[in-house]
Design a protein around this nucleic acid. Structure first.
Lengths: 336, 336
DNA sequence: TTGAAAGCGTTACCAC
DNA sequence: GTGGTAACGCTTTCAA
C-alpha cells in the first residue's frame, strides 16, 4: 500500500524523481538514485502496474490464449513463451478457452479487449470472422502459434510436409499397407492441422503409387485411449496394415499399446510413427517427426516483444518452424 | 481506444451514468441503460482494466504461481482454478517459476507485488521466510494448493494417510516384500509431500510388522523415465520385491514398464500401485490412490473469491481434500 | 435518476 | 538534475 508519495517524502525528493530513479532513467544523480532505491526498498515499495499502465500506455503484460493447458503442445509452447517473457520482464495473462465454445465470446470480448495486455499470442486456434476482427481492431501485435490463420501471422511447422515425411519413412522401409490415425480435433481448434497432416499422408502414398484404403483412415481424437481403441478394432479385421502413421505421438502410443493388446510385436508385426516428439516418445521407443513447440512459443514471444520494442519494423511474415525425423525402435522393414 | 467519454458523448449522458449503466448498478432508468449499452456495443467499448482497478481497488485478476506448467497435477489444478475464475469473471495472471531458483525473487518481488491481482493462489510451493513475509504483507487473500505451508492455509490430501492406504492395499493382498519409489522433488517445491508419502509407506509397513529394506527405497525423481531406470536396476538383483508403491502415477507407470523390460508380468510377478489417478493411469490399468487436483484448484479459487466477496468471514482453516483407492489390474495377490 | 468533481498512483512533459 | 503538474480512464461520493 505504500505508494510513490511515501517514497518521495521519505527520500526528500519529488515523485517525479522517484519515478525516474527507480526506472533507471537518465538525469538523476547517482547519489539521489541510490538514496531513492534504498528508501523504496526499506518501504517495500513497488510501482502499481495498473497506474503505470494507465499513465504510460504500456502494461508489460502479454496475453496468451490457449485452448487448454493439459496438452503437451500447449504446455511446451507456454513454457517457451514464458521463458522469453521473463527475460523481458513481462508478465503473462493466461486466457484458457478450455474448449468451451460459449466462453470464447467472454474471453474475446470482455477480457482480451480490456487493454490489459500489450500484445497477444494465440495457440492453435481458429477464429471466427468476428473474433479476428476484434483482435485486429485491438491494434496490438498478435501472432498465432500452431496453425495458419488467414490474415494473422503465425509460427508452425509445415504440417503437410511433416506428415508426408513420416509416411515416406515407412514407405522407404518397404511398407505398402499403411494406415493413418488422424481425426478431427475439438471444435474451435485449428482444423487445418489434422487435415493438412492427412493430406500429407495421402501425398506420400499417392506419390508411391500406394492405395489409401478408407477403412484404414482412423480417427483417434488426438489422444491415447481413443486411438488405442480404434486401432485395436482395425487390427482385429482379417487384413491389417504393416504400419501406421499417427497424427500425434499420443495417438501413436495408443497404437503401440493396441498392437500389444492384439498380441502383435512392434515393430516386428507393426511399425508405428508419430508426430511431435512428445515427452513420452522416447520411453516408448517411438519413431517420430519431432517438432519443438517450446521454441515456437519462445520465437513467437520474441517477435511480439521486438514489435513492442519498436526498434525494428514489425515482421509481417509467418515463420515455418522445423521438424525432423527421429528414428527409434517402433519402425522397421515389414516382415513379408 | 474508444473510452468512456466517447460513449457518454454518443449516448448523451455523463460518464458516471455510463459507468453505472454498464456495470449493472441500480439507479439507472431502463431506457438510459439500454441506450448506453447499445452505444457502447456499437463503439466496441470495453472498460480499461487498469483504470477501473486504479479507481476501484479491485483488479478482477487472480494471481497463480506454479512451479511449472508441464506436470499433470499443476495442469489439472490450473484448469480447476480457471473454471471458477471465469465463473466470477476473473482473469488469471500466471507466474511460472519454472523451477528456476533465481527467478523466484523476480516473481515474488517485482510481479506479484505490483498490485495487479486481488488474491493469490500458489501450487505446491515451499516458501522462504522472506517470500512468505512478502506474501503476507501484501495483505490479500492467499491459499496454497498441494502441500502444507506454515502460516498459510492450504488445500491438499492427507499425504501420509494416502500413502499408508496405498501400502495397506498391497499388504491386504498378501504382499510382504514391498519396495517404495519416492525421491525428492525439485528444489523449491514442497518437500514435505514426498517425505510424508514415504512416511505413510513406513507407517503401514511397520504397523504390519514388515521390514523396510533400505535397498528398496528408490528415488524416481517424480517422473517416468528415472523411475523406470531405478526399478529396472532393482529388479535385476537376486532378491526382488513382489510389489511396489510409487509416490506418483508417472513413477508407477515407469515401474510397470520396467517390469516389462525385465520380462516380468504385472501383476503376476509384480504388483504396482501409484498415487494420483493420472490421465494415463487407466490406460495402463494402474491401481492407484486417486486425488482430484482439478477440484482442489477449483475449491482454492472459490475460497479466495469468497474472501474477496466479503459476504462471509474469510475461512482461516486448511482443507483436507479426499483421496480414494481405485483398483485396476496392476495389483493382485503375490504368487508364492 | 443523473451529473459534477474528486480521487486512484503513476508517467511524461515542461520549467527551472 | 530536479520539481510541478497535466494527463491516463475509470469509480465513487455528493449534490441536484
Amino acid at each position: 500500500m505504500t505508494s510513490i508519495d511515501d517514497v518521495a517524502r521519505a527520500a526528500g525528493v519529488s515523485i517525479a524523481t522517484v519515478s525516474r530513479a527507480l526506472r533507471g532513467l537518465p538525469n538523476v544523480s547517482d547519489a539521489t538514485r541510490s538514496r531513492v532505491k534504498t528508501v523504496a526498498d526499506e518501504l517495500g515499495y513497488v510501482a502499481s502496474a495498473g497506474a503505470s499502465g494507465l499513465a504510460s500506455g504500456r502494461t508489460l503484460t502479454m496475453g496468451v490464449v490457449v485452448p487448454s493447458v493439459s496438452r503437451w503442445f500447449y504446455q511446451m509452447a507456454l513454457e517457451g513463451i514464458d521463458e522469453e517473457l521473463r527475460r523481458a520482464n513481462y508478465d503473462m495473462m493466461l486466457f484458457n478457452l478450455a474448449a468451451r465454445k460459449g466462453d470464447r465470446e467472454r474471453v474475446f470480448h470482455r477480457s482480451i479487449l480490456r487493454k490489459r495486455t500489450d500484445a497477444l499470442i494465440a495457440l492453435c486456434l481458429e477464429f471466427t470472422p468476428s473474433e479476428r476482427e476484434q483482435l485486429l481492431s485491438l491494434g496490438h501485435p498478435t501472432i498465432v502459434i500452431g496453425g495458419p490463420v488467414k490474415g494473422i501471422r503465425h509460427i508452425g511447422i509445415d504440417e503437410r510436409a511433416t506428415a508426408r515425411a513420416a509416411t515416406q519413412h515407412l514407405i522407404t522401409l518397404g511398407h505398402r499397407r499403411i494406415a493413418h490415425v488422424g481425426g478431427d480435433d475439438d471444435e474451435g481448434l485449428n482444423r487445418r492441422v489434422p487435415l493438412d497432416r492427412r493430406r500429407g499422408f495421402r501425398d506420400a502414398m499417392e506419390a508411391a503409387g500406394l492405395a489409401v484404403r478408407p477403412e484404414w483412415l482412423l480417427s483417434g481424437r488426438f489422444s491415447l485411449a481413443p486411438s488405442r481403441a480404434v486401432v485395436n478394432e482395425m487390427l482385429a479385421s482379417a487384413e491389417r496394415p504393416t504400419a501406421i502413421v499417427a497424427n500425434s505421438d499420443e495417438m501413436a502410443i495408443g497404437a503401440i499399446m493396441a498392437a500389444h493388446d492384439s498380441g502383435l510385436q512392434v515393430p516386428g508385426d507393426l511399425s508405428v510413427i508419430g508426430i511431435d516428439n512428445h515427452d513420452l516418445a522416447e520411453s516408448f521407443g517411438l519413431t517420430t517427426m519431432a517438432q519443438d513447440p517450446f521454441e515456437q512459443g519462445a520465437l513467437g514471444a520474441r517477435i511480439l516483444l521486438d514489435d513492442l520494442g519498436g526498434i525494428v519494423p514489425p515482421r509481417r511474415t509467418s515463420v515455418t518452424a522445423p521438424s525432423h525425423l527421429i528414428v527409434r525402435t517402433s519402425t522397421a522393414p515389414p516382415i513379408h
